[in-house]
Design a binder for these strands. Structure first.
Lengths: 343, 343
DNA sequence: ATGAAAGCGCTAACAA
DNA sequence: TTGTTAGCGCTTTCAT
């Protein structure tokens, strides 16, 4: 048997199909009697409005999550945050992993938005850092919300959800300093990774505030991976001056650092304190569990989703405000006061 | 300026809009001349067919990936596999995480399929194991492909992609046996986890084939997590008879096992060999890197996606064949021959 | 409060 | 090879 349409319902309820439409859309102007009758018919036929047909007349009902990030956990958390909003508001989520380095990203996204009637787009780093891409999308009438690392929105072109890595980096470093550490290594700086820049910036600020100079040799460049964490740590430990603490740019690096330190016979945290960043599962899959920074990705994504949906529903370009997230420390067992007297 | 429609193109190219439709759909019956003219107009206006309007007349163009699995890496890999097929064939992917234990899953999914005009559904465990859910969806005219653990398709209700955990478990155990291990612990059996059953089954088979009896105390129940891996190993090591090898049901458990063993002073693999399952990033984020079983999730998912798409495109219920995957061992450094003479 | 008519952008069926 | 006419299932006028 065929899927029932609005007309089948109308026939059964003995009203015009327009009235059924009104009931479905919760419009005021229907008498309680008729409404009840129609709803009964709907239930009886198990009628479900055809989403597609609706789309043709109304605003789009889906938004896209565009990303280029190898971190599964991050992507999943984002997805979940966005979906929570979509579900609540009846939207559909289309996911669109892409290659941020391709010349064609803009075209590709514009095509997707255009042909698939996608109402809004959420961009995460590094795509969200691409100014050119943004203006391109904006010129193609896309509603865009960016998730970005920073202490504030970089521009007013489109709303952004910014995550304050600087402040978080500062807080974490301050915490380490307060514990008595003076030789704090920084692992995982990467010029192409905005958030690593922010975290390093905070690291510097904390040192400045405490009037402690930073030893450049303690800042090691690398990737956001366990592997890289191990290697950076190896390099670090080979240097003459050992750090008493390590600030890793994310939990994977930190896990690698823990590993390498233990491999070389150092006790964590007695010999070296280690902290991560992100509060990902990795921070708990090592011993001792890592002190880290909580990055509420689900919330952040939900916020961004709520914003795009807002923009989509509002016809007028009633501007949606950018908003920011401050991050909190999660204190666990990978930090203690330094044992060694500084040499 | 408004989005151009098929009519705008028609006007510009000075043909009927039906002709434009023909060109867009690559139909034969259009002269080269006209076709060229139309294509030019399309380019000029940057016309993009309205996906929504098309959907109303043609078959649905999206499929849903339905899952209930906390393993980010697994989900992402699945997603990527499915997307690769979607992209290639112009389909849209809607992701739908859900609660497999809810009474309403069936209804929820049926509603999604019905109202959102979704053409096909890919189900992963444990949802794919729910026979009731399957028949419910089938009764609601959904095209379904299941991904399942097993040596063959359990039924012919709908095609399945089965992953042979039994065979893989057997191969891995056989490998351990060949290395000289006789006391092999099995970590992470869970009655609700079909694949753990299969792996244990393979473990048994290998022992049977080698005429070695399994010590029941070496089989420890638990979850597929690092945490649980640590705890199971703790329990295991507290027993009088120590194993010379550990077969962990997945890489996270194995990583936890490695950790706990080292914590208690055992060397890996010299004192205890440890193997995992899945070839996830976890298998490389431990030292030594884990010998494991490669589970080609991306491929598996792509296969499933290709199958649903096939079913969606074929009007006739030309039956799509189920298909299976055999898994291969990945030999790394967490295994060696046992040092200790058996006591 | 209800309904009839028009039409969203497209494709299918049927001409010409 | 091309164009015309319906009509998908719904919402939006505009009547009544």
């Amino acid at each position: 048997m065929k899927k029932p349409t609005i007309k089948d319902v109308a026939k059964l309820a003995e009203v015009s199909f327009k009235t059924v439409s009104r009931v479905v859309n919760n419009e005021e102007s229907v008498s309680e009697q008729v409404r009840a009758r129609v709803q009964e018919a709907i239930k009886k036929l198990n009628y479900q409005p055809n989403h597609t047909a609706r789309l043709m007349r109304k605003a789009p009902f889906s938004l896209a999550f565009v990303y280029d990030n190898p971190n599964s956990h991050y992507v999943i958390q984002m997805q979940n945050g966005i979906i929570s909003q979509c579900r609540a508001k009846g939207f559909e989520l289309v996911i669109h992993p892409t290659d941020s380095k391709s010349e064609e990203v803009g075209k590709e996204l514009a095509a997707m938005i255009g042909s698939k009637q996608i109402g809004g787009v959420i961009l995460t780093p590094p795509l969200s850092e691409n100014r050119e891409l943004l203006t391109y999308l904006l010129n193609h009438d896309a509603k865009v919300v960016r998730i970005l690392s920073g202490a504030e929105a970089p521009d007013a072109l489109a709303p952004v959800v910014y995550v304050d890595d600087i402040d978080a980096g500062e807080k974490m470093t301050q915490y380490l300093l307060q514990q008595g550490h003076q030789q704090i290594a920084f692992l995982g700086y990467h010029p192409a990774h905005e958030s690593s820049k922010g975290r390093l910036r905070g690291y510097q600020l904390a040192h400045d505030n405490a009037n402690i100079s930073v030893d450049r040799n303690l800042i090691i460049d690398g990737e956001f991976t366990f592997e890289s964490g191990m290697q950076m740590t190896k390099r670090l430990l080979a240097q003459p001056k050992l750090p008493t603490a390590i600030f890793a740019c994310n939990d994977e690096i930190a896990a690698g650092a823990v590993f390498m330190c233990r491999l070389q016979g150092y006790k964590i945290p007695e010999d070296i304190s280690i902290v991560g960043f992100e509060n990902s599962p990795f921070s708990l899959q090592t011993w001792p569990p890592l002190t880290t920074v909580n990055q509420p990705n689900v919330e952040i994504a939900a916020r961004a989703a709520a914003m795009v949906i807002d923009m989509m529903q509002d016809d007028k370009n009633h501007t949606v405000e950018s908003c920011g997230f401050q991050l909190d420390l999660v204190l666990r067992d990978s930090v203690c006061a330094p044992n060694n007297t500084p040499d």
